[in-house]
Design a protein around this nucleic acid. Sequence first.
DNA 1: AATGAATGAGGGTTCATTCAT
DNA 2: GATGAATGAACCCTCATTCAT
Lengths: 195, 195, 195, 195
Amino acid sequence: MGTRERILDQSIRAFNHSGTAQVSVLAIATELGISPGNLYYHFRGKEEILIALLAECDLALGRLTKGVEDEIQRRADFEPYLFSLLRVCDHFRFLFRDQEAFRFAHAGLEQKWLRMLGGLRRFSRQLLARLDQIEGLGLAAEPRDRLADCLMLVALGGLSFELEADRDRETQIRRTLGRLDALLRPYQREVTPAH
Amino acid sequence: MGTRERILDQSIRAFNHSGTAQVSVLAIATELGISPGNLYYHFRGKEEILIALLAECDLALGRLTKGVEDEIQRRADFEPYLFSLLRVCDHFRFLFRDQEAFRFAHAGLEQKWLRMLGGLRRFSRQLLARLDQIEGLGLAAEPRDRLADCLMLVALGGLSFELEADRDRETQIRRTLGRLDALLRPYQREVTPAH
Amino acid sequence: MGTRERILDQSIRAFNHSGTAQVSVLAIATELGISPGNLYYHFRGKEEILIALLAECDLALGRLTKGVEDEIQRRADFEPYLFSLLRVCDHFRFLFRDQEAFRFAHAGLEQKWLRMLGGLRRFSRQLLARLDQIEGLGLAAEPRDRLADCLMLVALGGLSFELEADRDRETQIRRTLGRLDALLRPYQREVTPAH
Amino acid sequence: MGTRERILDQSIRAFNHSGTAQVSVLAIATELGISPGNLYYHFRGKEEILIALLAECDLALGRLTKGVEDEIQRRADFEPYLFSLLRVCDHFRFLFRDQEAFRFAHAGLEQKWLRMLGGLRRFSRQLLARLDQIEGLGLAAEPRDRLADCLMLVALGGLSFELEADRDRETQIRRTLGRLDALLRPYQREVTPAH
DNA sequence: AATGAATGAGGGTTCATTCAT
DNA sequence: GATGAATGAACCCTCATTCAT
């Protein structure tokens, strides 16, 4: 793994753990055992790291979005697909917490962030629409979109809040999946098996 | 309003707007037109301000919690009650975002914060149980608690994320109320009228 | 005891314990349970407290100095007299440590301090001369004065350094007395009884 | 001379001149013409500078201590040896004044300081014992140790107090040497020539 | 005499960032 | 690609001191 990648990697880890504001560029460099100058050779500053990570996240979500039609053909395809999606959100979960770090960091970060969140929102609506296509949830477009918003909020909140304080990220993702499943159950014709 | 209160007031405003990490103690003082020394006369530092605000929020929630049994007698009592609750959460909404600011601030802040969040969670479960008592949601205790968690995540997320970017806090609270209402509708016998 | 006296009293205690630089005016006031404003009513500031204490010490030493001829008539009078002297020096021992606090505090403190130290020095020489008168130490004036300087340094150093770390001031004064006695012994005709 | 060394050097100068409490880290940086950030790049704060200087002093004293047996073979070796010792103590003389600065600074400073002072005390006793070996002072172990304490107090006090206000450090050290010599004279068989 | 809120200068420290090598 | 010393702005906080009451 090249230095650039190692920086991004460590940044994600640190940002997720402590929040962007609490992590200094120097701390990232120190943790990696490289000099601050070297870090600045690869990124012009903290903001550029954030921009890069935002782009990475956006890209990962975009790849998933494009695959919806192909990869989800029947009901059973949903869970693994959703799991992939949540894993991406969890990997970049610092992006879905402190909205403020982005609103107040210099230049166009907020715009980029809002665009990404907007994309995620459209994606979640698209996903629920797909489920409706396959399952027939019996929901009109408007309440369905509203439900999609709620599902997104539950997912993002669940990944950030650690209500149960399970250290394992995998467990936390599974728990979030369970929550989404529970919220959808009343609309589903047959009951999905509990796990 | 005394200086102490003005400091707390301005702090809430600033923390909600920019996040605790981005707000300097000096900025608060400057905004109020007082000297940094004066601010430090009233609070020993940023952390003490946070502790005071946490306590205020805790107190406000505690008052609401105690009133559940008395104030909620029938279905129609729910909405205004919930509105009060959301107004408190909205007022202190910075407390329900960056968990990290509290995890890494000095001393007992994280403990206090976790206790408050735990209280809010119990409260939301209690509230849903009360609704069950009155309405008969047809839910067992476990899925009902899970639903309560989801409702809480939707509420807190909705107050922080500004998906719709409405400037008016009142509107945002109403929208959050609408979301909660939508999530509960499938469990309710009669449909509540949309607003 | 009036407020003014209580302030001086507490100041001595605090200065001796922590050094003048480490003691804030506010700490003195707080310790006494009075307001900073009240303290400033009695003294225009820290420096004035120091000036007052310097004067107090000077006065106490002056009173002792004047009494030498009358109170020391024979060899047995020395020890109690020296004990009184050391008690004064011990009481104001912060004055005999950080010379720097006085050199760099505002106005004429250094001059006053140097005058007091000079007085103490002359006093110690006078005292040794008196001992010579009574005992006949067999020392010329110059080496006798030099010895007096040494005795003073041992006394002041002994009161400040706590080589033995005995908490009790009385014990420390006795120990210092013992040291002075030991230094004088080779010059004395008969051996004074060890205590 | 590297920046680190220049900082230590200037710190010694400033601490000796004004006392540790009166010297701000910023003043040291300004005096050296470097930025405060640079100073903090080399030392995490004032305390770390003090720790480094304490260690330096300790090291210098330790080197002298180890050489006693080898370097002092006869009476004539004493004076130059003592002169070296006093020069070290004089160089770091701020360390032998305000005991309080160390008692109240953070963490292990006091412990380190007490250890160094203890070492110096043992050293002075060892030195006097060596003189006894060579010269035969006719002193039992206990009074000899007591005398060693007195000599130490005179030395340290003499370096700090500037009774004579001679600007030249060399002169002050010589004067101190003279005092020690005078205190020892009554125990020595032959009189050392006055200088 | 006394209170206590308020001031403002200054000190300690962090950190994003630059730059010569 | 990489180092690490250096900068300077900004932040947190303390404290001597003032002043209206």
